[in-house]
């Protein structure tokens, strides 16, 4: 465990910001209310951190004490690298958020799913959340920086995919292009139809032959 005092120093502002948000946003507070008295132990890798989220009525508590030290059992435990944890939190509601080989879940999984689904419905106003601790000006700057970075990451990802596709299809021709594969699939489909027609015709002729023999 990290030095407990450093852990407390890091978690306390985050806890205060979340509790401010819960106080100011009754919708979010109502979504969290059913989880009162539950606890979730979170253990991350890269970087290694461990803390427990304790849900209380109208507030949460972030504790650096893990279940071994507290001598108690959390309702659920999540163990994963930070990147996997973030993608689980930010994934779309329809996607299979918990299907990730890097995620280790134990305890009441149904409860984790309910919590994730509540968080997805929460529509958290990050500007308000950060503003409560960092002030409006700094939080605006940080959010703008984050939005610019995520735009850049999305555009770079799209560009990289397109360039890679052009390279392997057009330049080194390792894989056929979309049009060629579509044409080949169409030909296959036609061939299958012709075969089906021939098989049906053979069956009809065979039936005719059988009836003449019997006459």
């Amino acid at each position: 465990m990290v030095n407990p005092l450093f852990g407390i120093l890091a978690l306390t502002p985050l806890e205060q910001a979340i509790n401010c948000l819960l106080q100011d946003d009754p919708h979010l507070a109502n979504l969290i209310e059913p989880f009162a008295s539950k606890s979730l132990e979170v253990e991350t890798r890269q970087p290694a951190m461990s803390f427990t989220v304790l849900f209380e009525s109208g507030r949460i508590r972030l504790s650096i004490i893990d279940s071994a030290m507290a001598g108690s059992h959390p309702d659920a435990k999540v163990k994963a690298p930070v990147s996997a944890m973030l993608s689980m939190l930010t994934a779309d509601a329809g996607s299979r958020r918990l299907v990730n080989p890097e995620l280790e879940l134990s305890g009441d999984i149904e409860w984790i799913q309910a919590l994730l689904s509540a968080l997805h419905r929460a529509d958290i106003q990050w500007r308000d959340l950060l503003g409560a601790t960092l002030g409006d000006s700094l939080s605006d700057q940080l959010i703008s920086l984050f939005e610019a970075s995520s735009d850049w990451a999305r555009q770079s990802n799209t560009r990289l995919k397109r360039n890679l596709e052009d390279y392997v299809k057009e330049e080194i021709r390792v894989v056929p292009g979309h049009h060629e594969t579509d044409r080949f699939a169409d030909q296959l489909h036609d061939l299958r139809l012709q075969l089906d027609r021939i098989a049906a015709r053979v069956q009809a002729l065979d039936a005719q032959l059988q009836s003449r023999i019997s006459d």
């Binding site: 407990p4 005092l5 507290a70 108690s72």
Partner: peptide, 17 residues
Amino acid sequence: THRLIKRFTLELSGLRQ
């Protein structure tokens, strides 16, 4: 630092609602 130490004590208490 006594504030952080007291917070650590409180976390070790394992108290619930």
